[in-house]
Computed example of a mutant assay.
Amino acid sequence: MSRPAVGLEAIVAHAIGLRRDLHRHPELMYREERTAAVVRAELDALGIAWRACAGTGTVARLGPESGRHIALRADLDALPLSESTGLPWSSAHPGVMHACGHDGHTATLIGAAAWLKAHESALPGPVTLLFQPAEEGGHGARKMIDGGALDGIDEIYGYHNWPPIPFGFAAAPAGPVMAANGEWRATIVGRGGHAAQPHLCIDPVVAGANFVQLVQQVVSRQIAAHLAAVVTVTCFHAGTADNIIPDSAELVGTVRAATTELRDDLARRTEIALHAACAPSGARGTFAYAPCYPATVNDARCAAKAAAALARVIGPERLAHDGLPLMGAEDFAYY
């Protein structure tokens, strides 16, 4: 391992190279073995003590023993997507890509670690660095907490890159910042038969189409306009041939909202829409709902401190809170 960079310009250059290396070698949740090894080698080079947590996660600490204890968090895992950018550092692993930017989160936290280590004697309190696995649906934050990652921590901060925010701008709002999300699966059972005799069948495709239309009214006609909420149908599977009405159809989707309570209410209303869509034909609908992450809600005092720090660096005119809360979800909510 090369000697760690200490000047800010050198730290940034090293972080860029590190990010490109991580981007080229993405790993799915709970399989971040190489990524964990890279993080731990970087910490060793900086002389920062660390311990493993939640398998491929890492908890590191520096600074004095006393004082207000701050934690900084990055996530490690990639997504099961194929990359087609053609960039020199594009993914070397077919079907796996850092499409959510966790490579950048990890590299910038290593950069922050280098800067903090270079100024360790000036730190007013201890700093813990959390390199967390399995943010992409694996509840890695919860496993880190179960592993003691938050023990003794007074405040924790993280960030999520968001390309729609203009370059050089940032947001640190108080209150809800990212959505609570959940997944649902609707199964419609009818009675199949020949497509030439639909009157002898109970068509689950028609019931499913009615459901897709009805569920669009959940947000537009049942939720107050000032509340951030989304219901989306993402899959519709039915049938095997052009002349056969199938026995069943399956639809899959997501509910998302700025509060965990509203997310669950959206799921309840989506189930009602399913049964309403099935009723005219006599089809039977079953609904399975799996809540995922709760809403990410920024503590007002911590958000104000983060916004003030950002304003000092990039200027208050570059704090952009439009379009928030995001309807993407984050397991930082557990912290």
Rank of each mutant, 00 (worst) to 15 (best):
A171N: 05
P198A: 10
P164C: 13
N210R: 14
F236R: 02
V233K: 11
S220M: 05
P198W: 02
S248A: 15
A186I: 06
Q213E: 02
F236Q: 02
A209Y: 08
G190R: 03
R191H: 14
T187Q: 14
E183R: 15
G208I: 06
P166K: 08
A179I: 07
I202S: 01
V231W: 05
A174H: 01
G193M: 05
A224E: 15
P198S: 11
G168C: 10
I223N: 08
H199M: 11
G175R: 08
A229L: 11
Q222L: 11
I202D: 01
G168E: 06
Q197K: 10
A209R: 07
G182S: 11
I165E: 02
A170I: 05
Q222M: 11
N210M: 12
V177N: 05
A238N: 10
W162S: 15
W162G: 04
A207P: 01
H160L: 15
D203V: 05
A228N: 13
M178A: 12
A195Q: 00
V230P: 02
V206Y: 07
P204E: 09
A207Y: 00
H226M: 04
R185C: 14
D247S: 12
V205M: 10
N181E: 08
A228D: 08
N161H: 10
S248G: 08
D242I: 03
A170N: 04
A228I: 03
H237W: 02
I223W: 12
H194E: 00
C235F: 06
F169A: 04
G168D: 09
A196T: 00
P164Y: 11
A196Y: 00
P198G: 10
G182M: 09
A196I: 01
H226S: 06
N210D: 13
N210I: 02
C235D: 15
G182I: 06
W162A: 15
F167K: 09
A229H: 08
G208Y: 06
I202R: 08
R185A: 14
N161L: 14
H199W: 14
I245L: 04
D247C: 05
G239W: 03
A174V: 00
V233R: 09
D203H: 08
F167A: 13
D242W: 07
F169R: 05
I165G: 00
P198C: 09
L227A: 08
G192M: 04
G182D: 04
H226D: 07
W162H: 15
A225N: 10
V218D: 01
V212S: 15
A207L: 06
W184A: 11
C201I: 09
A207D: 07
P163M: 14
V233E: 04
P198Y: 02
I202P: 00
G175E: 10
A196L: 01
V177T: 15
L200C: 09
Q197F: 05
I202M: 04
H226W: 03
H160K: 13
H226Y: 05
G182C: 10
A170D: 07
S248Q: 14
G168L: 12
P166V: 10
R221N: 09
G239F: 03
H199A: 14
P204W: 03
T234Y: 12
G175P: 03
G208W: 06
A171M: 10
A209Q: 07
V206Q: 11
G182R: 02
V230W: 06
P204Q: 10
S220A: 11
V219F: 12
P163Q: 15
S248V: 03
G192S: 05
H194I: 00
L227V: 08
H237Q: 04
A174Q: 02
